[in-house]
Write a protein that binds this DNA or RNA. Sequence first.
DNA 1: CATGAATGAGCTTTCATTCAT
DNA 2: CATGAATGAAAGCTCATTCAT
Lengths: 195, 195, 195, 195
Amino acid sequence: MSRSVPAPMADKLLATAGELALSWDEVRTEDIAEASGIPRATLYYYFSSKDEILQFLLTRMLERLTDAVAAAEDPDAAIPDRLAAVVRAQLAHLGEFPATAQLLTANLGKAGKLPDLAAGINAAFHEPVRRLLALGAANGTLRPVDPEIAATALYGAVTVIGLRSLVIDNHLDADEVSGQILPLFWSGIRPDVRP
Amino acid sequence: MSRSVPAPMADKLLATAGELALSWDEVRTEDIAEASGIPRATLYYYFSSKDEILQFLLTRMLERLTDAVAAAEDPDAAIPDRLAAVVRAQLAHLGEFPATAQLLTANLGKAGKLPDLAAGINAAFHEPVRRLLALGAANGTLRPVDPEIAATALYGAVTVIGLRSLVIDNHLDADEVSGQILPLFWSGIRPDVRP
Amino acid sequence: MSRSVPAPMADKLLATAGELALSWDEVRTEDIAEASGIPRATLYYYFSSKDEILQFLLTRMLERLTDAVAAAEDPDAAIPDRLAAVVRAQLAHLGEFPATAQLLTANLGKAGKLPDLAAGINAAFHEPVRRLLALGAANGTLRPVDPEIAATALYGAVTVIGLRSLVIDNHLDADEVSGQILPLFWSGIRPDVRP
Amino acid sequence: MSRSVPAPMADKLLATAGELALSWDEVRTEDIAEASGIPRATLYYYFSSKDEILQFLLTRMLERLTDAVAAAEDPDAAIPDRLAAVVRAQLAHLGEFPATAQLLTANLGKAGKLPDLAAGINAAFHEPVRRLLALGAANGTLRPVDPEIAATALYGAVTVIGLRSLVIDNHLDADEVSGQILPLFWSGIRPDVRP
DNA sequence: CATGAATGAGCTTTCATTCAT
DNA sequence: CATGAATGAAAGCTCATTCAT
């Protein structure tokens, strides 16, 4: 069980995530110590295992994302605009903290065993989208679709495109990328037969 | 460099993938040996490193998928139907060989460093979709969209929804799941304002 | 060097010895702290090392035994009776404080390096016996034997039989056990050929 | 579970025991490796833990002692002579392999947790003595005493005196020491009142 | 060709000990 | 005086890899 982590230590760790290699098993505790400036033994004073540090990093990152997404929404705006804002915020976060985002993606194998991670992903990615899809379907501003499926599809598409952009361009422009994804999900690929 | 792997050994290994834990670094060579019945030293006679075994497994799985996707397409059918067939084939493959699919997803960190993996993913997932999107846009059976972006979006959506189905239901019905995804991409979430 | 240890702390520690595993190296300072209720850092305020705590425990136990043995002797009694009283007192002490006795035996390896321990063992076990053996030989109430050898033999026999009784019966009846050992040393195993 | 240890490796280890410090916890696996010339990883190929190596050393030493004691007995001799031979053989073994003997004594704490050790001690020390005491009592060549108690007493006395001799003189003359112990046990300390 | 035996190179984790308060 | 927080210094053990047969 981890002790409550002091804020300065948490900051050091989060600021450090970018220096850590993608595959967590290739990161040595000494790497974490060096990169963060926190001695190994001190890390073990606060965390009971290396994996718990990964869990801490990913959880904190998802909490930040959850907050950023919540802050991006304007409750008075129309549902489609709010949905667009959510997707844009998610992409902006990926662009701002690419390391932790890639850390999550690259360690899905371990992440699957870390408790609470699924809840964090749900809170940061799925839940906001699912909620808006349901609201939009209810008030007619969106076509009724299975919110669960659609939210998961959006999550997959947004994440994969975002990471691809990071890998290829080494950079992510949230406005540009959301401007590419959103129309696709908005109108679909059906040929426009309307006059 | 790996020697040419004898077919029976390849079969043993592929049949074995399901028993191997998700995170490759948590799989010991002894685990691979036990699960496949191939002695450790013999594995090293055919592969030069543990990671090469992972690469072999993933490459073979993607080749199978590429073949399955190619076989599913009817060159005489309409583009939207061919696109649907491709997605359905990808999902069917996920359902049939969940272990290797999960192995790929769970080891994106290591996979990123394995040469040829990106090419395999492209051949199995992206290229068929991208080609059909371009063809459809050309002959008017699909709305013109950036094929790169749309193919990546479909890849992300299909993969994530497929894996989600596997994790939650421990099973994947390709027809059902493609029946959920395809309409979403076909029509989008825009409210249907047409009379 | 250890500060003078406050009596309540000494009592806590001595009362605690029973909870500490037999092999001192397997006892963590945290175990001592938990069992005694004395915080780790406080232990280090009074003792300069973990081994010094062991030394303290063993020394105190031997002092108690030395006192108990001295108190058991009646200077006016016959030498053989005094010798019997000494052995009985040693066994009674083993029965009363089995933990520390076992601690001593189980850590002979470390104890050998602890200064003053040998002196304590001598004072508690050897010296009283040796003295009486010499006195008895001098006044004819005991057969003349090498007091050094005989005292050591008695020490070994008494200790081993006492510990064996503790381990097997989880209990030690000093009267019963001394009633078994003393005749053996008194008469030996020579067949009684006298009429 | 330990693999069957190859004879040359066993020999190296046994020959090495003398260089290892008394308290097993103070011996590092690297010390064992250096002293024996067997690499650490190879030790772990044959033993599953450091304690298992201790157990192996002690068990083998006790087996050797058991054999030596059995060989020392002349089945045709009188019981008292056979008993004397047993004690002399035990002391001779202590003198010949002082390191392993001290290893056993110094690690009684850990030894208590090592399975089969008690059986080995019984076979090497107690059983031969107990058997002879019973035989002697039966045919009248020894005084009837509780064989269990007397055997334990002899074990304690012989071991402690033997080790004391080793520690003090750094050497053990089996004939001399048995010449000191045996008369004590033979005649006891009762004053000789016979004419 | 195949493999049992052997090992070099590390890594996580532990824990006695210190020190600022 | 007493102690919670912090850490330096190992140590046991693992495992990918090699190689003689």
